[in-house]
Write a protein that binds this DNA or RNA. Structure first.
Length: 831
RNA sequence: GCCAGAGUGGUGGAACGGCAGACACGCCGGCUUUAGGUGCCGGUGCCCCCUGGGCGUGAGGGUUCGAGUCCCUCCUCUGGCACCA
């Protein structure tokens, strides 16, 4: 490194200008022709199913798509480079409310609007150069697709997993449709934000609760492969709790009333009982004298939105039902109340209230002057109302059993044993998860393939009559009215009963779009299969998907539903897999100035504009380089211009290489070769651990090192320079496919760099000649030594002690201990 | 309220318990210039008595030869759940 060779001539002639528009225009048609990303599915290599959440066709692609596709493509292209048989499909989630609402506003048919958007997005995705296999493209609103959604519904129906029931359901007054529990966020409609109210309606449900335990158990295998927070959110949502059913005799009732409790140990402290006002039970129990008051209360409860109900500081309300129950443990007569803090659809819709040990019950007891008894001794110094902590039971004994002195867990076991012996209760498990309400009163969705017949009841549409196609309501008024717009299509609604041939009507509801998305990843595997929703053999070759990339907003919606579907399909014998997605990555959001982009804030950033200004590769590099994939990207802090400059620096190198293609790099400059091989080695590990931003930094470092080698080192003719630049092109192909392809061509290669193969690492080149050993005195760095990586501990210790700066820092003090971590560190502890 | 996760330069972010701030952006200085969103070189955590030294990863404590990293308490922020008995 003593000589500084200048290569100004080469620099002056070869530094052309980097024109991203020309490069994009040059390579897009070449790739379209080569179609390099088609899954082979021929057993020639290990299969890897790289899945990304399919887009919803609202307008053109936005910044969020730009991010999720860029991140997903790093992984997919990495696996292509490594030689896997990668399946990377794309499709559209093309049914749904937003398209319908937009179509109504524009006075168009939802199909017109939807399919136009799909074309726009498809063109944008092609331009964005994601490594998709386009031959498997699907749209969930195609009759060829939803035919099989209906077919699956019927299989669920046959198994009793799809059923209809009447209950109070979430109703969005704005969208004029029911919502699943999962679609209500803090009392508001997840889509439009309107306050959700309750309506009593007969609706279709999937019995996902039957799979609650399996949905919980199978998460153990996803540990470490799915983000921890998603697993936690799903566990919380499923909400398993262990407890007991306890029977309470109620005056005038032939059968006892069952309550669910997680604290059976506090039974002696149950001083009243509460039932949900909107449950059948409340109606049955209510005494005639209280009927009027109860009816008024029920009306009031029904009129309240969830937003009102959930408002903090809300006072407890309720009415006495005029009847008494008997506490089975101590024989006390206790009042039975109806109050809306008890939910009709959790447990049995009735609780034993224990104000001494439950905050809600305490509050209610205080407000209505009901008795309070403590049954757990509070800790020393406890001041407050209900005590929910640990402690020995008190006031809890009858002639047959005493819990007094027992800690909570022992008391639970003891009382349950007693209850079971008396036939008054049993140990049980309850889940927070509710059945999935799937019917919607809107037009643009998959029709429910059921016919209602006055004499036969619910009759499934025979498989050979599928699909039940949506009627062409072109020109009709699709505006929401509270009943499905399909009801207006009388020609379509009125049919002959498939069973008895009599007059019957079609079900006019459509399915939640989450039904469509619960199995789309299976349709990709055999998109033209016509004997079922998917070819079981193809499915078993590819499932479970190796990797899934998508947004966190689907943590408990889509991901839970898809897991449920796959388990049911497994039980139906159609699929070996029991889980759909073996690995999951949640990307963060693209925000602007600290806030998520929205029309109302006017802070939206247009993806197309960014692409026009900086080029596709620079925008993709910016997305990937911004930070860890799961962090949000604040676009206001991003500098795509910097990414563009980096790409230009990398690209320019490809025009300066002056050694011939196909040469042997082994005679090349060793230090540059080491940098190259180290970069590949590190990049591989970084991709596998999702640290894509650091991988880009490593590529930048290699570009910088190569620049130096060309300008003032070994010069452009050294084969190590060619090796380095070819490596940069291949690594860069994961993030900046256009630039990488053009570099590859400049280097004298045929397209496509995307299939060039991941560079092999020469282990011998990973060994450093010398490393810097840090010498600390009392933990502070005092000197640095260049040593051989193989240096022995004693040798390093001697060198460290001999250092002048170390001796100065010791300042005459003796040495107590020396910690040596050869070859990197010595820490000398003075006496 | 409950449950998670996170706090590092002017900014985005790096850092197997072992050199804090890699790589960028921005800024400063210089060189080029076929001139001005795009080249090249150098500098850039803070402070001081500046060939050196001190301080520094939200605050405080602890473990350790050694802590951004592990443990405890607190503060702040983000996300999830929110009367689930």
């Amino acid at each position: 490194m003593t000589e500084h060779v200048e290569h100004e001539a080469a620099a002056a002639t070869d530094r052309g200008s980097y024109d991203f528009e020309a490069i994009q225009a040059k390579w897009r048609p070449v790739w379209d022709k080569l179609d390099p990303f088609k899954a082979r599915d021929d057993g020639s290599a290990e299969r890897r199913y790289a899945l990304t959440m399919y887009p919803y066709p609202s307008g053109d692609l936005h910044m969020g798509h730009g991010e999720v596709f860029a991140l997903h493509d790093v992984l997919a292209r990495f696996w292509f480079q490594q030689g896997y048989d990668v399946l990377n499909p794309v499709g559209w989630d093309s049914f749904g409310l937003p398209a319908e609402n937009a179509a109504i506003r524009r006075n168009e048919h939802p199909a017109t609007y939807t399919y136009a958007n799909i074309e726009t997005q498809a063109n944008s995705i092609r331009r964005y150069a994601i490594s998709f296999d386009w031959s498997r493209r699907l749209h969930t609103s195609d009759p060829d697709y939803y035919r099989w959604t209906q077919w699956l519904f019927l299989r669920f129906y046959e198994r009793g997993l799809a059923y209809r029931k009447a209950s109070y359901v979430n109703w969005c007054p704005n969208d004029q449709t029911v919502l699943a529990n999962e679609q209500v966020v803090q009392g508001a409609c997840e889509r439009c934000g309107a306050a959700v109210t309750k309506r009593e309606l007969t609706q279709w449900y999937f019995k996902i609760t039957e799979y609650a335990q399996r949905l919980l158990d199978d998460m153990d295998a996803l540990e470490g492969r799915w983000p921890d927070d998603i697993l936690l959110m799903q566990r919380n949502w499923i909400g398993r709790s262990e407890g007991a059913f306890v029977d309470f005799e109620v005056d005038g009732q032939p059968e006892p009333i069952k309550v669910f409790t997680t604290r059976p140990d506090t039974l002696f402290g149950s001083t009243f009982m509460v039932v949900a006002p909107d449950s059948r039970l409340a109606d049955v129990l209510c005494a005639p004298a209280q009927r009027e008051e109860f009816a008024a209360y029920l009306d009031r409860v029904k009129g309240e939105t969830d937003v009102d109900r959930l408002s903090t500081e809300r006072e407890k309300t309720g009415v006495f039902l005029g009847v008494h129950a008997t506490n089975p443990a101590n024989g006390e007569r206790i009042q039975v109340w109806a109050a809306d803090y008890v939910l009709a659809d959790y447990g049995t819709g009735a609780i034993m209230a224990v104000p001494g040990q439950d905050h809600r019950d305490w509050e209610f007891a205080e407000k209505f002057a009901l008795p309070i008894v403590r049954t757990v001794e509070p800790e020393e110094g406890f001041e407050g109302d209900a005590y929910v902590g640990p402690g020995p039971a008190i006031n809890s004994a009858n002639d047959e059993v005493s819990l007094n002195g027992l800690e909570v867990e022992a008391a639970k076991s003891t009382i349950i044993e007693w209850l079971v012996g008396k036939g008054l209760g049993e140990r049980t498990i309850n889940f927070r998860l509710r059945d999935w309400l799937l019917s919607r009163q809107r037009f643009w969705g998959c029709p429910i393939p059921i016919i209602h017949c006055a004499s036969c009841g619910e009759v499934p549409v025979p498989d050979d009559q599928l699909p039940v196609e949506l009627p062409d309501l072109r020109g009709a008024d699709l505006a929401p009215k509270g009943v499905s717009p399909l009801a207006a299509a009388t020609d379509w609604v009125n049919v002959d009963c498939p069973k008895c041939g009599g007059a019957a009507t079609r079900d006019t509801d459509t399915m939640d779009t989450f039904v469509d998305s619960s199995w789309y990843f299976l349709r990709y595997l055999s998109p033209d299969y016509d004997k079922g929703p998917f070819d079981p053999e193809a499915a078993n070759r590819w499932m479970p998907a190796y990797h899934y990339v998508g947004g966190k907003e689907h943590a408990v919606l889509h991901l839970l539903y898809a897991r449920f579907f796959v388990k049911v399909l497994h039980d139906l014998g159609m699929l070996d897999a029991t889980e759909p997605f073996a690995r999951l990555l949640n990307q963060g959001q693209v925000i602007n100035q600290g806030k998520s982009m929205s029309k109302s804030l006017g802070n939206g950033v247009d993806l197309g504009e960014q692409l026009d200004n900086f080029g596709i590769d620079a925008v993709r590099v910016t997305m990937v380089f911004a930070g860890p994939p799961s962090d949000d990207i604040d676009w206001a802090d991003m500098t795509p211009g910097g990414s563009l400059r980096f790409l230009q620096r990398a690209w320019r190198l490809s025009g300066e290489v002056s050694s011939p293609a196909g040469g042997d790099p082994s005679s090349g400059d060793v230090s540059l070769r080491k940098a190259t091989h180290k970069t590949v080695h590190e990049a591989t590990a970084l991709i596998e651990s999702y640290r894509f931003n650091v991988m880009v930094a490593r590529i930048m470092e290699l570009v910088n090192a190569t620049r130096k080698a060309v300008d003032s080192g070994c010069g452009p003719a050294d084969p190590a320079v060619r090796e380095a630049v070819e490596t940069v092109a291949i690594l860069l192909s994961l993030v900046a496919p256009y630039t990488a392809e053009d570099m590859w061509a400049n280097l004298g290669h045929e397209p496509t760099v995307a299939k060039a193969g991941w560079p092999a690492v020469d282990e011998a080149l990973l060994v450093e000649d010398s490393v810097t050993a840090v010498v600390q005195v009392a933990g502070k760095v005092r000197d640095r030594l260049d040593v051989s990586p193989g240096i022995s501990e004693s040798e390093l210790e001697q060198l460290a002690l001999a250092s002048a700066t170390v001796q100065r820092a010791l300042d005459g003090r003796g040495v107590r201990t020396v910690i040596v971590r050869a070859p990197k560190l010595v820490n000398i502890v003075p006496a």
